[in-house]
Simulated assay, not measured.
Amino acid sequence: MTKLIVFGASGGTGQRLVEQALEKEYEVTAFVRQASSFPAPHPRLRLVVGDVRNPQDVSAACAEQDAVLSALGPSAKSEPICEDGTRAILAGMQAHGVKRLVALSAYGAAESHHGLYSWVTWAMLKTKMQDKERMETLIRDSLTDWTLVRPPALTNGAHTGTYQTGLDVPISLASNISRADVADFMLREAQACRFLRETPTITGRRRPGTPP
């Protein structure tokens, strides 16, 4: 696998996905709303400017890709975009025979909607969480080789490479993880497929003796 496309590439996690993928010598397509999101050119970076809700824009960008990484999420002033964007992404993947999808969701979606952390998150971010759940439903029902990554609160902390992942990772109100470490895991998972058609949680608060 050498060619990756990143949707939501101008967001906090998306930018880190692009940076780390280039460091790992992937050929990267960054799908952005505005070209100014990545002013610095790179020989292995291709910018595609478009609307992720537009099936034609998305389908053209998916051509000849080995895997799709989605870090879609609304900006502070934008409407929810995960459901509509994912619908276009899945159609584009099907049109071009792209199978591997690693998508950023959120802890508290679907069956992880339990416990104090989830209750607080839904109370504060109900519209965002509903959008993530609808996105998850579309992906689960697709024919892609998907992985849905569920972090708790995201920070702008350092890329440590030290985190805990799994299907039953405990999450508390104090749990958080850096966007850089989420990007690290998403890139590794795109290649390794450890959690194929599963929904791993990831947190920076690793229990002693547990491998990342």
Rank of each mutant, 00 (worst) to 15 (best):
M1D: 08
G8N: 01
A9M: 04
G12Y: 03
G12T: 05
T13G: 00
T13P: 03
G14T: 14
Q15V: 09
Q15I: 01
L17R: 00
V18D: 02
E19M: 05
Q20Y: 08
K24H: 04
E25Y: 00
A35R: 04
A35V: 07
S37D: 09
P39V: 07
H42G: 03
R46T: 06
V48N: 04
G50D: 01
D51P: 15
V52L: 07
N54M: 11
P55Q: 14
P55F: 15
P55W: 09
D57H: 09
D57G: 13
V58W: 08
C62S: 10
A63M: 04
Q65P: 10
S70V: 06
L72F: 03
G73F: 01
C82Q: 15
E83W: 13
G85C: 02
A88E: 10
A88M: 14
A91E: 15
A91D: 14
A95T: 12
A95C: 12
G97C: 05
G97P: 03
R100T: 04
L101N: 00
V102T: 03
V102R: 01
S105H: 00
A106G: 06
A109I: 11
S112E: 10
H114N: 11
H114F: 10
G115Y: 08
Y117A: 04
W119H: 12
V120H: 00
W122F: 06
A123T: 05
L125C: 00
K128E: 03
Q130L: 14
E133I: 08
R134F: 09
R134M: 07
E136T: 07
T137W: 14
R140E: 13
S142T: 10
S142H: 09
L143V: 05
L143A: 05
T144M: 00
P151S: 02
N156G: 15
N156I: 11
A158C: 04
H159K: 11
T160R: 02
T162V: 15
T162C: 14
Q164F: 12
T165H: 08
D168Q: 15
V169T: 05
P170W: 00
I171E: 07
A174M: 05
S175D: 11
N176E: 13
I177D: 06
S178Y: 11
A183I: 04
D184S: 15
D184H: 15
D184C: 02
R188A: 15
R194T: 06
F195E: 02
E198P: 00
P200K: 06
T203K: 07
R205D: 10
R205I: 10
R207H: 09
P208Y: 02
T210M: 12
